[in-house]
């Protein structure tokens, strides 16, 4: 499977489309023997109700400058949320489906 299949994929829940995958959050564990960076695994997907296209991540970082632009891009990506891997019901080439009871978390990166 390739990451490109997930990015920008439509997100379905209970049969209706609720947004698009704007990013895929990876968890990078401590590295093991023979590698310098741990093998990342999918931690969850960040979903946004609109397809915001170009990706600046203002809504997930505490970056507040440059003020006007940051505010604009945060507004554009309003309503984004994080869904953990375990809450995904199905992943196919053309859509990602969430479990009906999927929990929605804040997209902010710690």
């Amino acid at each position: 499977m390739y990451l490109a299949e997930l990015v920008d994929a439509p997100v379905l829940q209970a049969g209706s489309r609720i947004g698009h995958v704007v990013d895929v959050r990876l968890f990078v564990p401590r590295h093991t023997e023979g590698q310098r960076v741990g093998t990342p695994e999918v931690f969850g997907v960040v979903v946004c109700p609109r397809r915001t296209g170009s990706f600046l991540g203002f809504e997930r970082t505490d970056a507040r400058a440059p003020a006007l632009l940051a505010a604009f891009f945060r507004w554009r990506a309003r309503g984004s949320f994080l869904v953990l891997w375990d809450d995904l019901a199905a992943v196919s080439k053309d859509a990602v489906e969430l479990r009906p009871e999927a929990m929605r978390w804040s997209p902010a990166l710690a």
Binding site: L3, V7, V22, D23, V24, R25, L26, F27, V28, P29, R30, G38, P40, F43, G44, V46, F55, G57, E59, R60, R74, R78, S80, F81, L82, L84, R104, W105, S106, P107, A108, L109, A110
Partner: peptide
Amino acid sequence: MTEDLQPARSPSGGVLVDARLSLLD
């Protein structure tokens, strides 16, 4: 904004990285 959603607990001993934001391209 994201004020109403709780931050997800990130597992210990590692770091969270957004693929498209920090890795892709």
